[in-house]
Amino acid sequence: MYLENLVLDAVDPQRVGRFWEAVVGGETLTDEPDAFETRLAVDGGPVLDLCFQRVPEAPTEPLRLHLDLRGGPRQAEEVDRLLGLGARRLDIGQGDVPWVVLADPEGNPCCVMDDRSEYTDTGPVAALPLDSADPDRDAELWSWLTGWTDAPGSAPRTLRHPSRRGPLLDLWHEPAAKGPAKNRLHLDIRLEAGDDPDEVAAGIADRGGRELHPEWAVGLPWRIYTDPSGNELCVLPART
Score class of each variant (00 low, 15 high):
residue 175 P to M: 10
residue 24 V to M: 12
residue 234 C to R: 10
residue 2 Y to I: 13
residue 109 P to I: 01
residue 57 E to W: 09
residue 209 G to E: 02
residue 186 H to C: 09
residue 115 D to L: 11
residue 80 D to T: 12
residue 216 W to Q: 10
residue 144 W to F: 12
residue 31 D to V: 04
residue 131 D to E: 01
residue 158 T to H: 04
residue 191 L to H: 10
residue 152 P to W: 02
residue 14 Q to Y: 07
residue 130 L to T: 03
residue 107 G to H: 08
residue 176 A to I: 00
residue 180 P to S: 12
residue 61 E to Y: 00
residue 236 L to I: 06
residue 172 W to M: 04
residue 141 L to H: 11
residue 60 T to F: 00
residue 163 S to Q: 08
residue 135 P to A: 01
residue 29 L to F: 00
residue 210 R to S: 12
residue 31 D to L: 10
residue 73 P to F: 03
residue 51 C to M: 14
residue 4 E to H: 09
residue 226 T to L: 02
residue 130 L to Y: 01
residue 43 D to P: 14
residue 191 L to D: 02
residue 134 D to W: 09
residue 232 E to L: 13
residue 179 G to S: 10
residue 165 R to M: 08
residue 68 D to K: 00
residue 218 V to R: 15
residue 57 E to Q: 14
residue 3 L to N: 05
residue 187 L to E: 09
residue 226 T to C: 14
residue 18 R to F: 13
residue 105 P to I: 05
residue 207 R to D: 05
residue 97 V to Y: 10
residue 86 G to R: 05
residue 209 G to V: 09
residue 111 C to H: 02
residue 28 T to L: 07
residue 7 V to S: 10
residue 11 V to H: 09
residue 118 E to A: 12
residue 23 V to G: 09
residue 100 V to M: 02
residue 23 V to K: 02
residue 158 T to A: 06
residue 30 T to K: 03
residue 96 D to V: 12
residue 178 K to A: 15
residue 195 D to W: 13
residue 155 A to L: 07
residue 200 V to M: 12
residue 143 S to W: 06
residue 157 R to H: 02
residue 65 L to M: 13
residue 237 P to Y: 01
residue 169 L to C: 07
